Structure formats: C-alpha cells, structure tokens
Simulated scan of single mutants.
Amino acid sequence: MQELNIYPERFQSFYQMSSQCFYKILALVRVDLKKKSTNWREPVSPEERLLITLRYFATGCSFKARSFYFLKGHSTIHEIVHHTAQVIWKKLQPVYMPKPTQ
C-alpha cells in the first residue's frame, strides 16, 4: 500500500477508487475492523482488511487467489472479506445507500 500511495493513479487503477476515498472509508470503519493483539500473533490491520475487501470487490477473484496475493490463508481472507463487508454495510448504508426494496 505504501508503494501505491506514491503513485495515486496506480492506487486508483488497482482499487477502483482514489486514495482520498479509501481513507475516508477507512476513517468510518477503522474502529470496527481493529482486532486485539495476542501473544501468538499480530492481527491484520484495519487498512489491510479494507484493502483485501476492496480488491475482492474490484476483481471478484476467488479467496484462494486473494490469499496468494496478500500472503494470508484462504480461510483468513474469507473471514476478512465477510466481516469487512458487513462493517462497510453497517456504517455506509444509512448514509450513502438506500435500503433495498422488492
């Protein structure tokens, strides 16, 4: 991500949004995406959780493909995408998305 921040047009191309938009979304969801550290491992950061999910949304690639790219287990990617999507919906739906109707 740090390398992509140097080149905003690459960030835009890779994640299908500007870095400013990314940080605006991150500010809204960071607290709900933050996990506690344990003695055994450091948690995946809120930034990386959001990046993983946004890349999944942008490409639709499988969780297994995402796991190779982000160097995380495929079940970890699955959990991150599902949890982050729920947080995004919970935080952004009332402000930006109307409730779905039949």
Results as ranks from 00 to 15, higher is better:
residue 3 E to V: 04
residue 3 E to C: 04
residue 3 E to I: 05
residue 3 E to N: 11
residue 3 E to P: 02
residue 4 L to G: 02
residue 4 L to Q: 04
residue 6 I to K: 13
residue 6 I to H: 07
residue 6 I to V: 10
residue 6 I to G: 00
residue 8 P to T: 03
residue 8 P to K: 00
residue 9 E to W: 03
residue 9 E to T: 11
residue 10 R to M: 09
residue 10 R to G: 00
residue 10 R to C: 09
residue 13 S to G: 03
residue 15 Y to M: 03
residue 16 Q to L: 07
residue 16 Q to G: 01
residue 17 M to W: 00
residue 17 M to P: 00
residue 20 Q to L: 12
residue 22 F to I: 01
residue 22 F to S: 01
residue 24 K to E: 06
residue 27 A to V: 00
residue 28 L to D: 09
residue 29 V to P: 07
residue 29 V to I: 05
residue 30 R to L: 03
residue 30 R to M: 04
residue 33 L to T: 01
residue 34 K to R: 12
residue 34 K to A: 10
residue 38 T to E: 01
residue 38 T to K: 01
residue 38 T to G: 14
residue 39 N to K: 09
residue 40 W to A: 12
residue 41 R to F: 14
residue 42 E to G: 01
residue 42 E to Q: 11
residue 45 S to I: 06
residue 45 S to K: 07
residue 46 P to K: 08
residue 48 E to I: 12
residue 48 E to R: 12
residue 49 R to K: 15
residue 50 L to V: 09
residue 51 L to I: 02
residue 53 T to Y: 05
residue 53 T to D: 05
residue 53 T to H: 09
residue 55 R to F: 08
residue 55 R to Q: 03
residue 56 Y to S: 14
residue 56 Y to V: 09
residue 58 A to Y: 10
residue 58 A to M: 03
residue 59 T to I: 02
residue 60 G to S: 06
residue 60 G to W: 09
residue 61 C to T: 05
residue 62 S to T: 15
residue 63 F to Q: 12
residue 63 F to R: 00
residue 65 A to W: 09
residue 68 F to E: 09
residue 69 Y to F: 14
residue 69 Y to M: 14
residue 70 F to D: 01
residue 70 F to I: 07
residue 72 K to D: 04
residue 75 S to H: 11
residue 75 S to P: 00
residue 75 S to N: 13
residue 75 S to R: 13
residue 77 I to G: 08
residue 77 I to D: 06
residue 78 H to Y: 12
residue 78 H to A: 10
residue 79 E to A: 13
residue 79 E to V: 06
residue 79 E to C: 13
residue 79 E to N: 15
residue 81 V to L: 13
residue 83 H to L: 11
residue 86 Q to V: 10
residue 87 V to W: 13
residue 89 W to E: 12
residue 89 W to Y: 15
residue 90 K to C: 07
residue 91 K to F: 01
residue 91 K to S: 11
residue 93 Q to R: 10
residue 94 P to K: 07
residue 95 V to R: 08
residue 95 V to D: 06
residue 96 Y to F: 15
residue 97 M to N: 10
residue 97 M to Q: 10
residue 98 P to F: 06
residue 101 T to F: 11
residue 101 T to E: 13
residue 102 Q to G: 02
